[in-house]
């Protein structure tokens, strides 16, 4: 079947919120459908070559690690734009989501330039936004589904007017704690603050990313993947969703 070529950016720097859980889910769910994932770690100093990847993953790190990768990521900016424009799928979580926006302004006034793939800007806030989150998403027309995750970020991310969020906040803080938006979507590129990790308890989102990646690899339109039982996934989602409803979005 299809070999999905995944570029995992800075795995040894940006790995704090269980990012490898997301990779494990993508791998297993691809394999259960007869596909395979070929994972390439692309780190500081490594070349990121457009056309060689169907899926790009960038995770979150602590401030120190993010500062260490930022200059290298800036050098990969053109390649990332080209990859996204070429229709490859992309998932950016937390720190990676911030770095793929236009920039980040710290509490000390320092400016970190971003890649500008997502139409947003981030400014560090005083208190960290920490807790369980539940989102209402409509990434395919007419198909509304929820995402349950956990957020922990000092940054307040403002989407440009008209930009598409990943979802609307049912419970939790989201991008900035006030807009009601969480994450951002540009074509097949998805960005979010939610970890937990994101994909194990939101398997539909993993499958959507895989369908984008398979479409890119095979040069066809995205097709839904055959369903899996996902019983534990559903329980985990429901428990996390209940947590968000009862305690998300509060300091």
């Amino acid at each position: 079947m299809t070999t999905i070529r995944l570029a995992h950016l800075y795995p040894e720097y940006l790995n704090i919120y269980a990012d490898r859980g997301n990779i494990a889910v993508l791998t297993r769910r691809a394999e259960l459908r007869g596909h395979s994932l070929a994972i390439e770690a692309v780190s500081v100093g490594d070349a990121l070559r457009p056309g060689e990847h169907d899926l790009v993953y960038i995770g979150g790190g602590q401030d120190r690690e993010q500062t260490l990768v930022a200059p290298d990521l800036a050098a990969k900016s053109d390649a990332l734009h080209e990859i996204a424009a070429g229709g490859a799928a992309l998932l950016a979580v937390c720190g990676g989501y911030q770095l793929l926006g236009r920039g980040y302004r710290g509490r000390d006034g320092s400016e970190m330039l971003g890649v500008g793939l997502f139409p947003h800007e981030t400014v560090a806030g005083e208190r960290r936004l920490i807790g369980d989150v539940l989102l209402d998403c409509e990434l395919e027309p007419g198909l509304r589904r929820t995402v349950a995750g956990f957020e922990n970020h000092a940054g307040r991310t403002k989407l440009d007017a008209g930009a598409e969020p990943l979802g609307r906040v049912i419970a939790g803080f989201g991008n900035d704690g006030e807009s009601g938006f969480e994450g951002c979507r540009v074509g097949r590129a998805l960005g979010t603050y939610l970890h937990g990790p994101l994909l194990p308890r939101n398997p539909w989102l993993a499958d959507l990313l895989l369908s984008f990646a398979i479409a890119h690899a095979s040069g066809s339109e995205p097709m839904p993947l055959e369903p899996l039982p996902d019983r534990l996934e559903a329980v985990a989602h429901d428990v996390a969703a209940a947590r968000a409803r009862s305690r998300g979005g509060r300091f």
């Binding site: 790995n15 704090i16 807790g131 956990f150 970890h195 937990g196």
Partner: peptide, 15 residues
């Protein structure tokens, strides 16, 4: 468990 004393964020189990 995910009480405050355990950490409400359970993502650490993946690390």
């Amino acid at each position: 468990n995910d009480a405050v004393a355990d950490g409400r964020d359970v993502s650490w189990i993946w690390d």
